[in-house]
Amino acid sequence: MEFHILGQQLVNGLALGSIYGLIAVGYTMVYGIIGMINFAHGDVYMISAYITAICIAILSFFGISSAAFLIIITLIVTIVIVSLYGWSIERIAYKPLRNSPRLAPLISAIGVSLVLQNYVQVSQGAKTQAVPTILPGVFRFGTETDFFQITYIQVLLVVVSFASMALLTYIIQKTSLGRQCRAVQQDPKMAAILGINTDRIISTVFILGAAMAAIAGVLVTLNYGSFDFSVGFITGVKAFTAAVLGGIGSLPGAMLGGIILGMSESLFSGFVNTDYKDVFAFSLLVLVLIFRPSGLLGKPLVEKV
């Protein structure tokens, strides 16, 4: 085995995995609180990629070239706008259907997902979009011919992902808002009786999930540089796989699942076959569901009767 290739795949896998983890957080939190998959979540991520590109284009238009400034402003703007998307999705597709048959909100969320994809396609065109490289530069390891590299962006990506995960974990574990979220997750009826505004908490969870997807969108766009209106679909399925792998409902699980999925996918495409890497990720989902449906860090749930 060539170690520099292995190293490179692991680095790429870690970067990819952090992204999956960030998006998986949105799935895991929403699932934890309303027991449903947010089918429009992948498209929220896709929207954030576009907003990143637009932001960078505008800032460059005004002659701003400081990478740090560019990245920070882009992050802030994207998080704000994409959080609004997350909030609206909950308001339109989930909230009015709180007491409907179980299938209804899922179908309306799929409707929203279709609308978002097509809205972007019609507005921005179906072509692949790109952003300029903002933060060039790499760390190299190895000899002159056999080396692997870590780009600055990859470092930034991993650092920002872990930092935002840490922040989110802090919010959920330590703040009053987080306590309320956990209370609603455990027993929504009881939480409501105790005076927690469950509607507001559910909205908050959608917003937090969307914000994490926004961060993922910015980082991915800076890292890979190109995207189109359909990226949310397959990335969404994979991030969900990561959430299931880690144990749905568990925040550290989402990150762990993301990284395991990212690494193994990266190794698979490096050493086995690139064309079938999505097939691989998906097969992993089915295998996890069969052999360990509660995931790595999730608690096995006893369905209340």
């Binding site: 259907l97 799929i110 409707g111 929203v112 279709l114 609308v115 097509n118």
Partner: peptide
Amino acid sequence: ADYRVLIFGILMVFMMLWKP
């Protein structure tokens, strides 16, 4: 034709809200 999917999506949301 370009708006086909958009219209289906909107229809799906509205149907669920309005006539599930």
